[in-house]
Amino acid sequence: MPDMRRISVRVNGKDYDREVETRLTLVDFLRHELRLTGTHVGCEHGVCGACTVLVDGISVRSCLMLAVQANGKSLETVEGLAPDARSLNPLQTAFWENHGLQCGFCTPGVLMTLTEHLRAHPDSTEAEIRDVLSGNICRCTGYEGIVAAALQAARLMRGEAAQPRGHA
């Protein structure tokens, strides 16, 4: 018999109670049990960063964490970023304006990594942004648009005017 446990988690402000197998990874829980498929699985060994979510505000590789370990915690995923169904948040908008995505598969993880980072460090330099992004692999963009978008979002968060599509 599979080893089952009951867990309670809050995801993007909504509470869920589920009985899960103890071996179930957090990303599979989000994707298959809660049907929040915005978080993607890219490598299942913690390198590519596509599955990055925030657990109590801290970025986590949800492929390396078990669902039971999230019991009692508050999670943020890509689905929780936009303020409503019709608009995007400033970081998402910056990605749109700076061609920060092509296939879009790595994007949710990249957005969550940057969300955590920019909350604490809206004054980041390009070098710092590139360092933080080195934990997320993108095969399409060469990171150019991602870096430009992050810098634009940072400027907006600091209250400065946006400068879309410019290289810093």
Binding site: R31, H32, R35, L36, T37, G38, T39, H40, V41, T77, V78, E79, L81, A82, L88, Q92, F95, W96, E97, H99, L101, G104, F105, T107, P108, L111
Partner: peptide, 21 residues
């Protein structure tokens, strides 16, 4: 012009093959 693909993908609302259930 900005891409038509982006808003959906940026919300995590894309539909990749593993999202099909």
């Amino acid at each position: 012009v900005r891409r038509k693909e982006d808003p959906t993908l940026l919300r995590g609302a894309g539909r990749y093959v593993d999202d099909i259930h």
